[in-house]
């Protein structure tokens, strides 16, 4: 027995939907509860280039590719990355970011609803690797702006200096006492970092960044501002 409850489009809700709603976010659409903006996109863009912004990055799908053969398969598909670093790639029509965390572990952040997930899974499992879907398990937070390092050094003991932590490089380390997997990702010439944190701790980290960042002029921004800043190179 079923009713329309089985057929209405499911509403996908970000880990940061709670704090974003309290800050006045407008969602991407009715079934995608990620902040598109907070009411003033131009102010959001300006803050990113003058101070620092924090953005909930999504929705994205995430695939954990493990096993010794995994990296080889991804390289053959043209979507691998150098060990310890990230790379942008496209599989079919789907853009993605590849994070080579360890010789036997890569994390793929893929545009939502792409067909890529199936292709990757089939290829990897054929090579005796495993693919696990972590699309909901990790939340993505982008920290972008000239003050990004000043903010992050208050919660992170990794040396983030521009000449010591290269563009694309990955580190797995605590920020504010929670484990974060992050990479340097400048947006054009604006300093920036991509953070991946366990979903259940994302709201805490987001609020900690805003609280500590107040003195640095940090504000939250939505996807539209990030897209505008990236000039379409969000991926």
């Amino acid at each position: 027995m079923s009713t329309t409850l089985t057929t209405t489009t499911p509403i996908r809700r970000s880990a940061l939907a709670g704090p974003a709603a309290r800050l006045g976010a407008n969602w991407i659409d009715e079934t995608t509860e990620w902040a598109a903006d907070y009411g003033d996109v131009s102010a959001e863009i300006a803050a990113a280039t003058s101070a620092c912004v924090v953005a909930d990055w999504g929705p994205t799908d995430k695939l954990a590719v493990k096993g010794p053969g995994g990296r080889r398969v991804l390289d053959e598909l043209g979507i691998g990355a150098p060990l310890g670093a990230t790379a942008s790639a496209v599989l079919g029509e789907t853009p993605l970011r590849s994070w080579a965390l360890a010789p036997d572990e890569t994390l793929l952040i893929v545009a939502a609803d792409g067909a890529a997930a199936g292709t990757v899974t089939a290829a990897v499992e054929a090579a005796a690797g495993t693919v696990t879907n972590l699309s909901s398990g990790l939340a993505g937070i982008r920290v972008v702006g000239p003050a990004a390092r000043e903010l992050l050094i208050e919660i992170c003991a990794v040396d983030l200096a521009a000449d010591r932590f290269a563009e694309g490089r990955i580190a797995m380390a605590p920020m504010g006492n929670v484990r974060v997997t992050f990479a340097r990702r400048d947006v054009r010439d604006v300093p920036g970092f991509e953070l991946l944190v366990a979903r259940d701790q994302a709201a805490y980290l987001f609020e900690a960044l805003l609280h500590l960042g107040a003195i640095h002029g940090v504000r939250p921004v939505g996807q539209r501002a990030i897209d505008a800043l990236s000039g379409g190179t969000r991926w």
């Binding site: 797995m172 380390a173 605590p174």
Partner: peptide, 8 residues
Amino acid sequence: FHRLGCRR
């Protein structure tokens, strides 16, 4: 065990 890092 790298508890707050790579967890290896």
